[in-house]
Each structure stands twice: as C-alpha cells, then as structure tokens.
Amino acid sequence: MTWLRCAVRRPAADTRLFCFTHAGGSATAYREWHGLLPATVELHATQLPGRADRFSEPPPESIEALADVLTETMLPLLDRRFALFGHSMGATVAYEVTRRLEARGLAPARLFVSGSPAPHEPRDTRALSTYDDDALVAELNKLGGTEVEILAHHAMREIVLPYVRADFRLLEAYRYRPGPPLRTPISVVVSDADPVVTPEQAKAWEARTVSEFSLRVFPGDHFYLQPHRAAVVGEVVRSLTG
C-alpha cells in the first residue's frame, strides 16, 4: 500500500503540499482540504500502517524509521516546489523528514507545524500508551477531535485504540538528536487553549530554523483545525504564495 494518498490529482499544479497526520489519524484528516486549496497546489496526505485500509500491517517501529520511509516515498514527487504540514505527532514527523530532505539538498518551500512542542523542548512524560482503555479514552476526550465520537462505542475501541497506542509509543520513544537548524522557513500554527502546547511554548520552534519564522494563533483546543479549517488552509496558501 502507498504511504501517500492524493485524492485530487492536479497535473498542472506548481506546488505539492505533503500533510502528516496526528497520532491515531489517517489521510482522511485532510480530505476536506482539497476543495479549499487553489488549483496550483496538489495535496498528498500520509497513510500510516495499522489503520484504515492498512489495518493489517504492523505499525512503524520509530519516528526515525517512519521519517526514513516517508522521505524515500516522497522523493519521486519532488520534481516541483513543495511544502510540508504536520499536526501534533505529524509535526514531529514532518520536521524529521525535512531534516532528511535538506541533507539531500532538497529544501521545502516551507515547513508548517501545528499543535506540537518544538522537538528539542520537554514533552509530556506520561506513558499514555500504557493507560487502560477507559483512562486512554479520557485523555483523548481532553484533546477533542472526531475520534472521541467513535470511541464512545466499545466495539470501535477494539479497532482504534491499538493504533492510537502504537502512535503514542512512537512519540514516547522519540528523542531529539541535536543538529544544525533548518534552512527551511517554519510557520507555526497553534490554538489558544491547546493542552499539548501553549502559544508561548510554540515559539521555541524558531530555534529550529535560520530562515523566516512565523506564529499564528487560532481559538480552540488541540483539534482547532476542524472548526477553523478554511482559515488554516488560507494561512497555508498565503504563506506559500506571499
């Protein structure tokens, strides 16, 4: 199965936008973005193993291994200008992919990171992956998102929670490896009531680039992307075309 999904092919597009999903997410997290993007931007969203139509496949072993395979998968698609967008866990993965691309001399036009602390900053030290079902669902409820409605059904928990736990294990095992800052501009997008990262904490991403840095704050919780989808996509488009 392919690691990247493109629901709307745009052969004439001059830019490709690669979107990386949050823990427990799939490519469908970005399915509404296509209609909000101009014809000049073609979107490719990550589809990780262990979920949706890749349910029977084993989950990734680490963030580093995941970044390695995604980098290789993206290479044939980098024949034009490109940018990366990652939310929550996806922000960390997108950052690690950007490091690998820059090492190959392939710098994105911009890296967009959303709802995530900077990779070199302290993170939540709780091992959420070890929580029992009720405790894990309670933590997910605090974050919000569409998965909360699904997890109200116990039968669905048996399907969804294993890959949610697998993703949390990736984050819990991730350790930032010191290295030079990116040459790629970084745009941070966060919400004002996110329990994962505050706007003040998100400013630490500026240390990860020697290029342009911007920070945009939206109202909402960790999944502010849903109610403010059009505005977030608009911010991405403005950054790419401005």
Rank of each mutant, 00 (worst) to 15 (best):
L128H: 15
E57F: 06
A109W: 08
A91I: 09
T28E: 14
P108F: 12
A27H: 12
A29M: 14
P181K: 12
F112C: 03
R16I: 09
A202N: 04
A39G: 15
R54G: 00
E158I: 01
A52R: 13
L111N: 04
P180C: 08
S116V: 09
E139M: 01
G145A: 09
V188E: 09
R80M: 01
A155D: 15
A202S: 13
P76S: 10
S129E: 15
T21L: 00
P76C: 08
S88Q: 03
R104E: 05
T15P: 01
L182N: 04
S191D: 02
H228Q: 14
E57K: 01
P178Q: 12
T125Q: 15
V237R: 08
D14I: 05
H87N: 00
R157C: 01
G144Y: 06
A152Q: 15
A109D: 13
G24E: 03
S191M: 06
L37D: 01
Y163G: 00
V137I: 12
T209N: 10
P58W: 04
H153D: 14
V197N: 09
H120W: 06
T21H: 14
E32Q: 13
T198I: 07
T125F: 11
L84H: 07
S129F: 15
H22M: 02
Y176R: 02
P49G: 06
R183V: 10
P227G: 08
K142V: 09
D221S: 14
A29P: 01
I186F: 11
R165W: 03
C19Q: 02
G115K: 04
P195C: 08
H22C: 05
S116F: 10
